[in-house]
Nucleic acid binder design. Structure first.
Lengths: 237, 237
DNA sequence: TCGCATAATACTGTATCCATAATTATGAAT
DNA sequence: ATTCATAATTATGGATACAGTATTATGCGA
């Protein structure tokens, strides 16, 4: 239509995205204090758009704002993971159900193509590649479900989950197990067995939670205190 | 424990809350343009905290930001309602299931007390009172479910739903019907029949969607254009 | 040497100012 | 009279400056 539909994104949006990436990559790790001035100088911008970006990230739950104190990267407790994973299991399970009923032959073909990529990454033993392919498959299922709000909620929750390290795939045979779960999910979708697809997807998510718990149990030496700065100012009260 | 835990909320938070109330009360109706300068003058503050408040509201989905164009109250399409209500049905249904299993006798007592309030408001024919009592009951069920993240997601979605007028309760026998549905839900919880409680809660939400659809079908003359201002600048491309 | 009070410092919160882009108004040409 | 181009206006986006509060450092007293 008109040329001004190609609206250039506002600066605070770009800043928010860059901060997200730094949080997801754990360059900014949970508990780390975020200094407005320092970051603004780093990016060569003023504090105004940076502050707006932080407000957005706070709404997403990635950072926590303490009025007149500052802002730190949100720390998830085990309790949070115990809440979020079953929720994701419920939502993604539902998506699998709907997707199974709505998928056209062309959609199935695409799902299979995405799954094959997953198989290849697994064969290569590429953890990051597997992670990305896994995400692509799940996202495709969510889109096939046809409910944009469910997908939106799942995306938001996934962002929060990315606060935790994603190396549970490195655990013993977790990658192989995850792959096998995917195979069975795809099979159920292909066979138009919506109820089974839902159940398997549900179990798949809970399986992911279990792997994470196992990993956390193994590493029983969590970072005792948030990364320095202005001293310990977090009071979980 | 230290005195600074009584952190005074930042100005942008108060502004955000006041704007939420104006949106929920439909003083600011969907599609209405939000003028930063005008609002800042109204509240006697500068544009800075106001802009931060708008970023927060945008993250919540209550307003839509058009970079370099401005900001208007989000308009929900029927499609959105068709997506959100089934999602709420899924989530609140799950809450009912969990709540049924976890409720202590004291919890049951409280639920019954909340339901009685609903009965009283219905008897009085107080629509707003019924609405509030209804909300209180649903919220109690969500809290009993014990999953804070599910409750959080439901709360967020409920805020978005408040963009629509809530007068579907005025429809023919909708209030009576809603009350009856509540009675059956409470009965199922009391009888520790989690599966039935889930099913009934699920149906209750979908029933709410149906009432809204009926109302929208009746009023087939929607506001043709967003409330004035700088002319029609919304392009739903 | 340790604890507390006070001063210094650094960061967040808010206001003001400037730049830029979008919309509206104006005017000329067809 | 209508349409298009151009100028003026207005609102948003971003930067800077100032105020207030929380933390840290310093020094006094026990």
């Amino acid at each position: 239509m008109s040329p001004h539909n190609i609206a250039q994104p506002a600066l605070y949006q770009e800043v928010a995205e860059r901060l997200r990436q730094r949080i997801f990559s754990h360059e900014l790790e949970p508990g780390a204090w975020v200094d407005e001035q320092t970051l603004a100088e780093q990016y060569g911008i003023s504090r105004t758009p940076l502050r707006e970006a932080l407000k957005v990230l706070a709404s997403e739950g990635l950072v926590t704002l303490k009025p007149r104190r500052g802002c730190y990267v949100t720390q998830l407790a085990e309790r949070d993971l115990d809440d979020i994973f079953p929720l994701m299991a419920l939502l993604e399970g539902r998506c699998a159900f709907e997707a199974t009923q709505r998928a056209t032959p062309a959609d199935l073909k695409r799902l299979e193509s995405l799954h094959e990529k997953l198989e290849r990454q697994a064969a290569k033993g590429d953890i990051n590649g597997f992670f990305e392919a896994n995400h692509a498959f799940h996202e495709a299922v969510q889109e096939l479900s046809g409910n944009r709000w469910v997908k939106q909620v799942i995306d938001d929750l996934r962002k929060v989950l990315k606060l935790t390290r994603r190396d549970s795939l490195r655990l013993d045979g977790r990658l192989k197990q995850s792959l096998e779960e995917h195979r069975r999910i795809l099979a159920a979708i292909r066979e138009r067995d919506a109820a089974t697809a839902e159940a398997l997807m549900h179990a798949h998510l809970l399986s992911g939670r279990a792997a994470l718990a196992k990993m956390h149990a193994a590493a029983l030496s969590p970072n005792p205190s948030p990364a320095g700065g202005r001293g310990e100012r977090i009071s979980h009260g």
